[in-house]
Simulated scan of single mutants.
Amino acid sequence: MVDLNVDEWTQEEFLRNKKELEAQGIKVLLIDTILNPIDGIETTLYAPPLLKNEEPGSVFVFYCDTGKSSKERLAEFRTKFPDHVCISLRGGRGYWRKHLRV
């Protein structure tokens, strides 16, 4: 069972939870807030008007370079996207290991 009442997911948690949630029909998006996509995984550019069109209940996992500012902005994201689950990627882009798989 995936806990969606958290502020952060590690990369491993993101990969594991994405697989489990998408098997249940819940979309999980890795949101790029710094205009710098992560190699080896699909990312979605932070564009609020487009993100608001995503299915209610979708999970948005925001990342920045270190994970610090995306975590600090969670309240803003949650206000902006009340119909979606908003989580920060712990360590951000800097801690992403492109060969880590689950």
Score class of each variant (00 low, 15 high):
M1N: 11
V2I: 15
V2T: 13
V6W: 00
V6Q: 11
E8I: 10
W9E: 06
Q11L: 15
E13S: 14
E13C: 04
K18T: 04
K18A: 05
E20K: 09
L21V: 11
L21K: 07
L21M: 15
L21A: 13
E22K: 06
Q24Y: 11
I26R: 07
V28A: 01
V28I: 04
L30R: 10
D32W: 06
T33I: 14
L35Q: 10
L35G: 06
P37E: 01
I38H: 00
I38S: 06
I38L: 13
E42D: 10
E42K: 14
T43L: 01
T43H: 04
L45N: 14
L45C: 10
P48N: 06
L51A: 05
K52D: 01
N53F: 08
E55V: 08
G57W: 01
G57L: 05
S58G: 07
V59W: 05
F60M: 10
F60D: 08
F60A: 05
V61H: 04
Y63K: 06
D65L: 11
D65H: 13
T66E: 08
T66Q: 09
G67V: 00
K68M: 12
S70D: 06
S70P: 07
E72V: 06
E72G: 03
R73E: 04
R78I: 07
T79C: 01
T79H: 05
K80M: 15
D83P: 00
D83Q: 13
I87L: 02
I87Q: 04
L89V: 04
L89F: 02
G91E: 07
R93V: 01
R93Q: 05
R93N: 03
Y95C: 08
Y95R: 14
R97K: 15
R101K: 15
R101N: 14
V102Y: 10
V102R: 01
